[in-house]
Design a binder for these strands. Structure first.
Lengths: 205, 205
DNA sequence: TAGATTGTTAATCGATTAACAATC
DNA sequence: TAGATTGTTAATCGATTAACAATC
């Protein structure tokens, strides 16, 4: 592993490589090349080689990359060769959909708590989870040592919930609320806002 | 409007500006500066001025930007000063959540059709929509002239649905399936994969 | 061995920032 | 007028691509 700082734009591509490689592995493929992987994910072979080589020499001249080995290495680099516990805040439609989503567990994540500030929802079940009161969020998240949260509350509530998550020690927030969050710079935020994503494409129509 | 090609990375920031400006407008604010807007969205003032100036001179020295005017211009540039009809494919949990999502209409989008390939779901209602058979997708989407689709089917089905959407004339796909899609280069794809977004942050934990 | 493909260097290309004249 | 802030230029910084020696 290289000690120099890796650009965030490279880190952002690794999960895409990981996903494609996992798919190949599931299909029984053992080996791939930067060329082939590049065609799958729409990125140049040169860039893929350059990205991967930031972290070590994982390939072999002439034959390419062992998929199983590269998967292991990428999971290790991204720290997803373990199970991260995740708190979900906001038990609306989107929160319910995420709580039931089957795709997290084999990619390194598990939702373990769900919060909502609606007293009418508190105590209700979502799958196997009981919705907890947002008033308990800081205490519960902090004592469980949870570092990752998903935010599916309405926009007007998002900043104050984010503040509580930060206070509870959360360092990574996946934000579904359509608003830019203000957090300390040692806390990462990723934004998922379908309307924003759509608006990014209409320009070209 | 400038005739030169605008970099996609700039286009990608415009919806973020738009969202922040709309929020300011909703709060009754009339005017802002590149400095202030930058603090809201976490982007430097210089970059915001440069981005906006690609499309015209929308500000005033000394006073900044009229929010209402800049909103109008950004909506016009992004072509969201109208209502785009959207087809949704995949009536699972995520599809249901999107079908009920209130945030599309005032940002330029309206879901008008929902498809699923499960004959058991076809004919059922989601809100005011009746789920239609995926077999009818190409015909229905094409004849309605729909250019935008959201994809919430399982990963193994995503590529073949994308192919049908392309065949039906769709030019923009918001893909929730955790897989890279292969489409002609005149078709845009945006990816929303929560696990990928989370994995992009765990590196820093 | 011959063919294929990596890892890396240097060149190119593109994006961001700093600075400031113009001007409201 | 004095202060503030734009739009734009030039400088800097960073990312991507092309090319190829090394080597499996």
């Amino acid at each position: 592993m290289n000690a120099e700082k890796i650009p965030d734009i490279i880190i952002g591509r690794l999960p895409v490589y990981l996903r494609a490689l996992q798919r190949m592995a599931d299909n029984g493929i053992k080996t791939t090349s930067s060329q082939e992987l590049g065609e799958h994910v729409g990125i140049s072979a040169a860039q893929i080689r350059k990205d991967i080589s930031q972290f070590g020499e994982f390939g072999k001249q002439g034959t390419g990359y062992s998929i199983a080995y590269l998967l292991d290495k990428l999971k290790e680099i991204l720290k997803v060769n373990r199970r991260w516990e995740v708190a979900l805040v906001g038990a609306g439609d989107m929160g319910h959909a995420l709580a039931r989503y089957q795709g997290f567990v084999n990619r390194g994540f598990q939702i373990v708590m769900i919060f909502d500030n609606d007293k009418g929802k508190v105590g209700q079940k979502v799958d196997s989870f009981t919705i907890e009161d947002s008033d308990k969020l800081v205490e519960r998240v902090k004592s469980a040592g949870i570092k990752i949260a998903m935010l599916t509350v309405p926009a007007p509530a998002a900043q104050s919930v984010a503040d509580k998550l930060v206070q509870a020690g959360v360092k990574a927030i996946l934000n579904y609320a359509p608003i830019s969050l203000n957090v300390p710079h040692n806390v990462k935020v990723q934004y998922i806002d379908p309307a924003t994503h759509l608006q990014r494409m209409t320009y070209y129509l």
